[in-house]
Simulated assay, not measured.
Amino acid sequence: MSTTLSSRPQMAPLTPHAHGLFPLQSQYAKDIINRATMNKCKPYTTPVDLSAKLSATNGPLFSDPTLYRSLAGALQYLTFTRADLSHAVQQICLFMHELRDVHFAFLKRIIRSLQGTIHYGIRLVKSPSHSPVAYSDADWGGCPDSRRSTSGYCVFLGDNLISWSSKRQPTVSRSSAEAEHRGVANAVAEATWIRNLLIELHTPLRQTSIL
């Protein structure tokens, strides 16, 4: 990883905003774009082409795996304030062992979206509600190689997004219902962990978690 991206930068301070706080990593995102030499690339508004299915075997091998891994690692750190990139970054990190040109094209699509959303971040607001709400979703057999599913969740505390994940499931699901149930189980585990953490911080939640 280059000296620009090798050490994890400090998170940008919580910037006062008209409606709360707004942590973001815009300078770090610019560093990633510079590292990829894509300063003048055409910006995209979305990080992924939903019709694309990445495979471990399609296309020729990529010639510079060090560059790919450097950029993928940097993007992974960026997801600390960019939940919208989590699924796309998770996809490119699945192929570190045998990189192909199509994987790098997918990664470049993410960087093009950074160019168009450089000032995106997470907004934290004073919320009248402290009700925990979790959302979960999953595909079914989305990986063309292993036929494993990908599930994701996000957890809100009141109006604030506080936790999110997108991850390939460890085993093959026999139906879409099974894939969804695995995703729900992950969301429930995360919501339970957050409740226990808040108990340790002496701020227990009195409302039931909603999934």
Rank of each mutant, 00 (worst) to 15 (best):
F62K: 02
P13G: 09
I199H: 11
S127D: 05
S131L: 12
L5G: 10
E200V: 02
N39Q: 14
L61S: 14
S173E: 04
V89W: 03
N196G: 01
F104S: 05
D159G: 04
T57E: 11
L54F: 07
C143F: 04
L78I: 08
I210K: 14
D145T: 08
S70Y: 00
L14M: 14
S129L: 05
L114T: 08
S136N: 12
P144H: 09
I110K: 03
T117P: 02
R69E: 05
S70I: 02
L54A: 10
G20A: 10
A18M: 06
E180F: 01
A187Q: 04
R82A: 06
K167V: 12
Q91R: 07
S113F: 05
M38L: 15
S136Y: 12
V184R: 12
I110P: 01
A83T: 06
D101S: 12
S129N: 07
A191W: 01
A134P: 00
Y68E: 08
Q91M: 14
Q169P: 03
V102R: 09
R174N: 07
K40D: 15
T4R: 11
Y153S: 06
E98Q: 14
R35A: 15
K30G: 01
S7A: 13
R112L: 00
S165F: 03
M38W: 06
P144F: 09
I122M: 15
E190I: 03
Y77I: 05
T45Y: 05
L124E: 04
P128Q: 06
Y153T: 05
L198H: 07
R100W: 02
G142M: 08
R148P: 01
W164A: 12
T81Y: 01
D84E: 15
Y68S: 10
Y44R: 12
T46M: 11
Y135T: 06
G152S: 11
R100M: 04
S63M: 07
D137Q: 03
H97K: 12
T203F: 04
R206F: 12
M96T: 10
A29S: 13
L71Y: 08
K42I: 07
K40S: 15
A105T: 14
C143E: 05
G20W: 02
V48Y: 10
T81I: 03
D159K: 08
F80W: 13
I118Y: 01
R35H: 14
R8I: 10
A88K: 03
Q27S: 14
N160D: 12
Y44L: 15
S166P: 05
K167L: 08
L24Y: 09
Y44G: 00
L99C: 11
T3D: 13
C143K: 03
S7Q: 13
S131T: 15
L157C: 12
A72T: 11
I33A: 11
Q90D: 10
A134V: 10
R123S: 14
Q115F: 00
A177R: 02
V172D: 02
L54C: 08
C41D: 07
S163F: 08
K53G: 02
F156E: 02
R206D: 13
V89L: 05
L205K: 05
E180D: 10
S6Y: 03
S165M: 11
S63A: 15
D101C: 13
R112W: 00
A56C: 09
L114N: 07
H119R: 04
L124A: 06
W140N: 07
S136V: 12
L205A: 11
S2H: 06
